[in-house]
């Protein structure tokens, strides 16, 4: 028996090459749109291409971006995490409170990240082991974790005199590059490597692609589900810690609505909301795209009300485009 018999006509071969070019188009089109948008921005607003503006842009998008990477993993398993905004706010407050109470900053950071991961693991675990819908467990998380955040200080901001080193984390620069931007890029690269190169990554796709087949193949379906929520919680907590570090203060009201921004970026990045298909790179580009868009609006002086309308319309347009390309790919 010969390897995939080149003599016999393979019905799949033509389909596949077309599939590949479509994949390229689908993955590439976001990048193309992103670059075009940058060109337009540079033409419309000369200050767009200044290092200062680019650095600002990266700094603003990084926190949402870090959370969106975690969200990508969750959505790849066909789950959803609505609690990220509250988790981020909680971790941001916790780290400020702990440091103010004299805990060593590194220990405070580790504790806050652990708290985020634990919260994610609980919500994911409830959904995995008791078969509760993730939408509901994380919606419950959204409210109760936000409540806990307020309870920490009775609703007032925390911190104020955080150590200089800690402030560098969220607000510092290396050369012209903001440290949070580097962290965002690092998180993206690690997530991409994990998804591409580890068994866990394979399982994430498998669970999202066909849960029942994954179960009957002996995969640790419930552990994988729990793990992606823990990772999402961890990354949300990281975003919270970074914000506190930049603002030098913990804000209990921070990050409201973050979950929607993150989900929007993930879906815009081409990840299937029903699991099994998608890449963190798509999410990465989508996060930048959304924030360039916002930046552009600001530079040309569009009101924020108008911005909201246009951002929504662009999301819908992108989804329609993806659907059109996908239908063509399925044929």
């Amino acid at each position: 028996m010969t390897q995939t018999a080149s003599r016999t006509r393979l019905p799949g071969a033509g389909v596949l090459s077309r599939q590949r070019s479509l994949d390229l188009l689908r993955n590439g089109n976001l990048l193309v749109v992103f670059l075009l948008l940058c060109v337009v921005a540079a033409l419309l607003a000369p200050e767009f291409l200044t290092t200062r503006n680019i650095a600002n842009l990266l700094q603003q998008s990084s926190l949402t971006g870090i959370v969106a990477i975690g969200m990508t993993l969750v959505i790849l398993t066909a789950g959803i995490d609505l609690s990220v905004g509250s988790t981020a706010a909680f971790a941001g407050m916790l780290v400020a409170v702990l440091i103010s109470d004299g805990v060593h900053p590194i220990l405070a950071i580790v504790a806050s990240l652990a708290a985020g991961a634990a919260a994610g693991a609980v919500m994911g675990g409830l959904s995995a082991y008791l078969a509760l819908p993730a939408f509901m467990t994380t919606l419950a998380g959204l409210t109760s974790i936000r409540g806990l955040t307020y309870l920490l200080t009775d609703g007032t901001p925390a911190g104020g005199d955080l150590p200089e080193g800690f402030q560098l984390l969220g607000g510092g620069f290396i050369g012209h590059v903001p440290i949070v931007g580097l962290i965002f890029i690092g998180v993206t690269v690690i997530a991409a490597l994990v998804l591409r190169g580890t068994t866990f990554g394979e399982y994430v796709y498998a669970v999202g692609s066909n849960r029942e087949a994954a179960r009957l193949s002996g995969l640790p379906v419930r552990a994988v589900t729990t793990a992606v929520f823990a990772i999402s919680g961890l990354l949300a907590a990281l975003a919270g810690v970074l914000l506190t570090s930049r603002l030098t203060i913990g804000q209990p009201t921070a990050f409201s609505g973050l979950e929607l921004d993150a989900i929007a970026a993930v879906v815009l990045g081409g990840t299937n909301l029903f699991g099994g298909r998608g890449k963190v790179f798509g999410t990465f580009v989508a996060v930048l795209l959304l924030s360039v868009l916002k930046n552009l609006f600001n530079l040309v002086g569009l009101s924020s009300f108008f911005q909201m309308v246009v951002t929504g319309l662009i999301l819908v347009a992108a989804l329609i485009l993806n659907r059109v390309l996908e239908n063509r790919g399925d044929r």
Partner: peptide, 18 residues
């Protein structure tokens, strides 16, 4: 289709998943 395979994933991935 419903219980044995990951239809959207590649042949090699399916073969290696277990």
């Amino acid at each position: 289709k419903e219980q044995g395979l990951f239809l959207g994933l590649g042949v090699a991935r399916n073969a290696a998943i277990a």
